[in-house]
């Protein structure tokens, strides 16, 4: 990766783009500089994967990355390895009512995937495009399979692609002034739930990302920062 190029790009974009809505993102990038650097590294490393997925998702590669980039920036593999075994046992044993937790680089929850599976089942087009996503009726075996899939980056990319298609179809009557407006909407849907109404998703709401941090940011603002800072 050409870091100088990225730094230049960041600098230029910082300076030239309008400030509206990006203040939070800038501050996030400031506070989590190392994490953002790693997320940008991840983008460089997996750009080709995002390009392939973006074609199927009907959005640009950087749009697709930006939707999950805040989660990527907070992901730490040590944390993932060390703290999810117990949660996996509880989910496999008892289902999402018991343990619904974030897994993997894009920090997806089993309930998120279950919702996507339901959407595929109800939509003939999606059923053709994502036929392998659906799993049999809820059972211990299907929950185990779902967790195994969630631990794979390839499957997370598939779920992310499907998410974009679901949101596109669910909000097909919604118009977006710009792609940045659309990104904020998709990022909110990713972070807060695509089952929410358009009105709810457009409300800014209180900042609550990252979950544990004392000083919190709006997820959509952070996603927008990434969108503006990758090419």
């Amino acid at each position: 990766m050409n870091t100088v190029w990225i730094n230049c790009c960041i600098a230029v974009l910082f300076l030239l783009l309008p400030e509206v809505g990006s203040g939070q993102g800038r501050r996030y990038a400031e506070m989590y500089a190392g994490e953002c650097r790693e997320a940008l590294d991840f983008w460089e490393l997996h750009k080709a994967d995002f390009e392939v997925a973006a074609k199927k998702a009907g959005v640009s590669p950087r749009f697709l990355f930006a939707v999950v980039a805040p989660e990527v920036s907070q992901f730490g593999s040590l944390m993932n390895k060390a703290q999810t075994y117990t949660l996996k046992v509880l989910y496999a044993q008892n289902g999402k009512a018991y343990a619904d937790f974030s897994i993997g680089m894009f920090q997806m929850k089993p309930s998120f995937v279950e919702q996507l599976e339901v959407c595929v089942g109800r939509d003939k087009t999606l059923l053709v495009e994502f036929s392998d996503v659906r799993l049999p009726a809820d059972s211990r075996d299907t929950r185990v399979e779902r967790i195994k899939r969630l631990d794979s980056l390839e499957w997370q990319m598939t779920y992310l692609t499907l998410f974009c298609r679901v949101v596109e179809r669910r909000f097909s009557n919604t118009s977006f002034a710009t792609e940045e407006d659309k990104l904020r909407f998709y990022a909110s849907a990713y972070n807060r739930g695509f089952h929410l109404s358009e009105e709810r998703l457009r409300q800014e709401g209180k900042p609550y990302f990252p979950a544990f941090a004392r000083q919190k940011f709006r997820y959509a603002d952070v996603a927008l920062w990434f969108y503006r800072n990758v090419q």
């Binding site: 117990t86 509880l90 937790f101 544990f212």
Partner: peptide, 8 residues
């Protein structure tokens, strides 16, 4: 049992 984002 309550489940936090990453912990039981």
């Amino acid at each position: 049992l309550d489940i936090g984002e990453y912990i039981v």
